[in-house]
Amino acid sequence: MVQNKTLGSRIFDIVNIIILTILTLSCLYPLWYTFSLSISVKSAANAGLVTFYPIGFSLASYREIMSDIKFFNSFWISIQRVVLGTGLSLVVMIMMAYPLSKSKRDFKARDIFMWIVIFCMLFNGGLIPWYLTIKSYHLLDTIWALVLGGSVPVFNVILLMNFFRNLPADIEEAAVIDGAGPWRILFGIVVPCSLPVIATVTLFTGVYHWNEFFNGLVLMSDASKYPLQTYIQQLVVSIPSDTTLTPDQYKRLSELSNKSLNAAKVFIAITPVLIVYPFLQKYFVTGIMLGAVKE
């Protein structure tokens, strides 16, 4: 780019950097604020004195969590959910996306299946029928309600399908001549050639299962079966939906909470996302762009 260093241009550069830095810091603030609260002295945290930095230093909150069985229980449920949910949907999604990536010539029913899948993405029966259906399967209060309840992540299937479709056709043709069947081709050739998009959908699905709280709230009647996000939601955010609530009651409710302890729990819940974040960052741009394939 040609550099024209007029005064106006320089002022713009400075102002621009300041604006962008403020925006960037605002996105870091949630993490920093939560962390600061969690290591602050309890009294300061609860009095609302923590704003931009920790006040005092105390690991009491983390120590308290160490002996909190309910917290670890929910943490464990979330881990199970992420592992089972991601693993299962990954296999199912890949197996679905491959035949759908074929042309109608190679797979006659392709278009019919595609329309069913798209219809399921765009239309749903609504909350109550969905809930009653899962109830009728006797899945309430089981981990399978959380793993299966969200149904097939159709959008991810489409991502995979579009990627498979753009793989060079001659690799597959060579394998066919060598006598490889469809399963060998899928898992021996197509999957190894598609690792970036598989990484993308794995991360998307994993983060979805980790972050999802609503199914946990609705499908689990027993608080001891809540996944971590639902546990935190109940603990920190939940306010009685009683319509007689007055502003004064609301004020008192918000003063009751143990801010530092809650922040420590929230921070622990964020940590896994932060750990996979570099990978997310690397792949998700590709993932989003793959969502739209122009032909």
Partner: peptide, 10 residues
């Protein structure tokens, strides 16, 4: 990538 549960606490 943070859930609304987490963001709501903040």
């Amino acid at each position: 990538f943070l859930s609304w549960v987490i963001m709501a606490t903040i």
